[in-house]
Design a protein around this nucleic acid. Structure first.
Lengths: 122, 122
DNA sequence: GCTATTGTACTAAGTAGTTAATACAACAAT
DNA sequence: ATTGTTGTATTAACTACTTAGTACAATAGC
């Protein structure tokens, strides 16, 4: 399930989204050392510059931090991870409501559709 | 609420997504004539070429069709619109489950989160 | 102290998306 | 028949993203 990129969206933004998920689900835990830029780039089959750009962006968001010649680490502190999970979930759910409302569904219909989806699919 | 574009994704793909929603919610009804390429481009504050590209793509999907010098029309036939609405809704909901499962929520938790969101927000 | 690995920076080239400007053919409206 | 509007095509220029290649400073590990 690792490192699949779609067309129509910059790779570096997709890397950020997928890395956030990996942090949120514990693949990379707070305080843990990340693979090096070059390793990550190799694993994602992406140019090191592209991976570097994604990582630099996540540093600006304080999700990870770099130690000059030692490597990169996931930021520690329980709030960070909890905030990330909550923010991601709210983004996903908010987008769903926004989109479904645009095509004419109200709150009840949305909840019904989500329930039905959970039963029928997978 | 018309024609807002985000960064990080080609404009023509965002035009397609928003036009699909406009067809799905009845802004443009089956059989109805669409504004001309130039009008749409003006309304969306976008170059005519970009609008043309989005419209051409939607023709390939048979959602609209062009009459050489008369204009563009929404494809008629109830199935088309129903299929569109169902496809859009399934895409949105499917993405939600996929994303939330990645950060560790199961079906029950997802449904709970959606219910809570519907109560609390807006 | 040496070495390998780390993050970081830079330049050049290629590709895709966007805009601008222009042009043409077909036909509805007059 | 003429005119204006339609979809469509083409060319050029600009920007953003991506890749390739190279290089450097800092330091952990030995």
């Amino acid at each position: 399930m690792d490192w699949i990129f779609k067309e129509g969206q910059p790779i570096y933004t997709q890397i950020i989204a997928q890395l956030k998920i990996k942090i949120a689900n514990g693949t990379y835990k707070p305080g843990e050392k990340l693979p090096s830029v070059r390793e990550l780039a190799l694993a994602a089959a992406v140019n090191p510059n592209t991976m570097q750009r994604a990582l630099a962006e996540m540093e600006r968001e304080c999700l990870i931090f770099a130690e000059r010649t030692n490597g990169r680490f996931v930021t520690e502190g329980g709030e960070v991870l909890d905030n990330l999970k909550r923010t991601l979930a709210e983004e996903f759910i908010g987008d769903l409501f926004q989109n479904l409302k645009k095509i004419g569904l109200d709150n009840e219909e949305i909840i019904a559709a989500v329930n039905q989806w959970a039963k029928e699919e997978q």
